[in-house]
Structure formats: structure tokens, C-alpha cells
Design a protein around this nucleic acid. Sequence first.
RNA 1: CGGGGUGUAGUACAGUUGGUAGUAUGCCUGGUUUGGGACCAGGAGGUCGUCGGUUCGAGUCCGGCCACCCCGACCA
Length: 491
Amino acid sequence: MAKELTSRSENYSQWYNDLVVKADLADNSAVRGCMVIKPYGYAIWEKMQAELDRMFKETGHVNAYFPLFIPKSFFSKEASHVEGFAKECAVVTHYRLMNDPNGKGIIVDPDAKLEEELIVRPTSETIIWSTYKTWIQSYRDLPILVNQWANVVRWEMRTRLFLRTTEFLWQEGHTAHATSQEALEETERMVNVYATFAEKFMAMPVIMGAKSANERFAGAVETYTIEALMQDGKALQSGTSHFLGQNFAKAFDVRFATKEGTEEFVWATSWGASTRLMGALIMAHSDDNGLVLPPKLAPFQVVIVPIYKQEEQLLAISEKVESIVSKLKSLGISVKYDNNDNKKPGWKFAEYELKGVPVRIAIGPRDLENGTVEVARRDTLEKQVVSMEGIELFVQKLLNDIQENIYNKAFAFRKEMTTPVETYEEFKDVLQNKGGFISAHWDGTSETEQKIKDETKATIRCIPFDQIPEEGKCVYSGNPSKGRVLFALSY
RNA sequence: CGGGGUGUAGUACAGUUGGUAGUAUGCCUGGUUUGGGACCAGGAGGUCGUCGGUUCGAGUCCGGCCACCCCGACCA
């Protein structure tokens, strides 16, 4: 029986939910707002992790691990930080359960109350900077370039698989530097790493830029972001890199002796990307037939489906497949041979399309006779019969083509969906009838941004790094502006 | 936290005026099939979310509670 997906045009949100569940990426769990990431989904996340981890290490970072729990008092040390996160923290108050003396079940042992409550980390700046205090005395101890892979908890009011879950997986980099300049360079370096990853691996074009004050991370002096555009015209913040100035060093009293013998507060950055990238990946490329994965992140890039009548035919096919598999593997191409006899070829075709496997090879008696195979590409759903001879090179090129094609497609879409506007009327019209990024002049004030948000729900996604200096008038207030910023509805 | 919805077999659902639970799919056995989600035969699987009430009798009616999902406000 078919696993029917809701179409994107019918209900985009439903389509997304259906897709995540039916492609076996993740499921809702017994715990409100928390998901189970299933093996196929987790395999994609592992691919992302592996590549990001490699890029972090290439830029000089090392991994470490800090505690899940943070003493409550740590949170009050940085004022804007606590304000940003206080409303969404899970708090541990007790450490023991007991049998309910009044009957069945178990209760929290009232005698096991913690003297100081522990916060389940929503992010680790505080626990890490309290630790850095003990690591840093001299300029010789700097820089510290640490990343951690972890889970964090943010008690969001409303959740969506991958896009916003109560618990999510991410990495958070926390670096310490002797100078403002150096920390700023680091902040920029890491947002570039994210952008490179998004474009080269996820095949997802992003716009790099700075956040406005309203959208900045709680406790940051400056937040850089990569913003991607989803197929429904909404923006998705896909990675952020923060210049924290000396805020956390001051909050946790982290000072160092300079070469000159003076004492100064340490400069900080933090940067993170989460399982939300999975949501971005899903929405960036997929269609009404299911997932479309970029070859560089697909758990397996090629699936081979045998078509046969009798056992002897399967044996003959398997023999051919074996050599194809080894040739593909020698080129570093990952491949799955699905010789499961319980499912018919047609079922497998549909299933692997749903799961977004980039290339499918079918091989049957007809092919054995002709020395050919049928190759189908997921992005365009095109099929062609090609010679078995040199198939590995054909597939290698095809995988590259697919990676490039889905990037180009997403890029063209974003271009089409980025609209410059001059008036507020136009702004509202585009927002309502077209969506996407709106490139508009803004007077630079928080008040204006807030008013636009209140009236239209659109926010400034970023002030692009490649902003062209241009005299203009704020689309809302009419006050002078020096360049355009990008507005959009966002996830 | 407001609004809406749903809890019945692994999953998705149906269940009429209240009469002792069914369909599809999946699963197990056997056989036939296999180039776009196969078919036949047999079989296993449910204290109907939970607590209470009405009743001779409750999946069904009434009340409380719980959970999850969806839509908003908050956020990555």
C-alpha cells in the first residue's frame, strides 16, 4: 500500500510532517516536544556531524565536553543572557524517587530536594566560562578553541520535528581570545564555515550577514547568521556565530595577564548549528514524491534493485551487482544492494524515492542480456539505460551532477523569491502574496523593526555582508538608510 | 498559555437507537509472483487513554483527570 504524502501545495506544513515520518527520519515520542531520531535520519545527521567536525578541526578547534547541568546561580551572572533563556529552562529540583506511601506508583522524595537547583543546559556559555576561569591566567593560555557536541533543552511552547524540539542535538563552539580583533575574526571564520557547509554539502544556498539588535543572541555583542530560504517562502536561520565581547568574561571574572603585564578580560565567541539543519535539508530540496538528498549527505548514494523471476536469475544478477558494487566503492561511492525478496521492485522504487536516495540502479534479465543497467536519478526522476561497462564513472559524474543541480535549483528559487521593494505597501503586498526575502531599506532602529514585526510578522533576517552601500529611505519610517536589509517570515 | 483535534490490534482508521469489537495495512505459515507500491489460502494479535457515574448491560451516554497532535503568542 502506498505511503501517501500530502502535497506541498495542499498543505506545506502537513507535507513536511508526513515526509519526516514516512521517510523514517524521526517520530514524535512519548515525551511532549521530544523526538526520536530514527536510524535513517540519524545517519544523515552523522554525515553532517562528520563533515562539520572535520571543518572545525581544520580551523584549529578541538572537542571537549561539559556538564548537562548548570547550577542555577550561574545563569544570573550575565543579565541579558538570563533574560533570553529564563523562560524556557528545565529545572532539576530533586534527586530521588520513592514509593508512594499512600498507594501505587512512585513520587518524588520530598526529602531529596537539591539545595541549589540545576538547570538543564539550554546552551553552555555559563558553565563553560565558569570553567575557563580556571583555565586562563595568561595570554599564553589563549586562544582556547573548543567545540562540544551535545544535547540541549529549551522548553519551547510549540515544537516541530527537527525545526524546534524541546531537546535537540547540536554543536556549540566556545572560544576565548586575547583581543577583540581576534575574536571578531573567529566569529567571522565560523559563520563562513557554516556557509561553506550549507552550500557545498547541503546544496543549500545561504545568505551570510549580521543580525539586527532585536534578533541578536542573548548576551552577544554581535551575531552573524546564515539564512536559507525554504520552498514555502519562509526563511530558516541555519547557523549562528556570536561575538560575545567581554560579557561572559566579566560575568565570570575571567582575566588574563597580557605580555605587557597588564590585566584584561578575555574576549569570547560562541557558534552553533543544530539538528534544525535536518529540517532545512528536508525543506530545501524535497518534492511531493518524498525526500531529495544531496549526494554528499545521503546515507547511501546508490541503491541497486534486482529484477528477477527465478532464483537462478537472482544469482546471475547478484554476480554482476557484486562487481558494480566493488567498482563504486573503489570510487568512494556508498551503495546499498537491496536483494530483499519480500518486496517487489515497484515497492522498492517508491520507497527509495521517498527516502531520497540520489541514484537508483535497476538490473534485470533484459540488462543481463544487453550488458546494461537502468539508472534513475532522484532529483529529476529521469531514467536511462546505460552500459554496465564504466558504470562507476557514469554514476560518479551523475552524483556530481545531482549535487550541482539541486544547488542550482535552490539558488534559482531564492533568486526568484528575493524581491526588492521601495514602499511599505509593496512590502506588505509581496510578503502576503509572494513570500521569500524582501530586500528593503531600513532606518536601523529597533523600534521600526519591532513595528514591522508587530504589523506583518516579518523580521530582519540579516544585514547581508555583501550589502551594497546605497542611499535610500526606510520603507517604514521614511528616514534615511545606507543600504538594504533582508526581511522575511521565518521558522 | 489560549483555540481546535485525537486517544480502539504494530500502524492508519471505522464502530449506527447502548447488547459484549471490525476494516485496511503490517506481522507469522505455505504457495504462486517479481521491469513502478503483487496475489491466494490459513493464522496470531485489543483489560477500547485513565478514574468515576448512569444502566440488567458502556468503545458508545455523563463528569473529572491524563497524554499527544495541529493552529497562534515565545524561540534555534
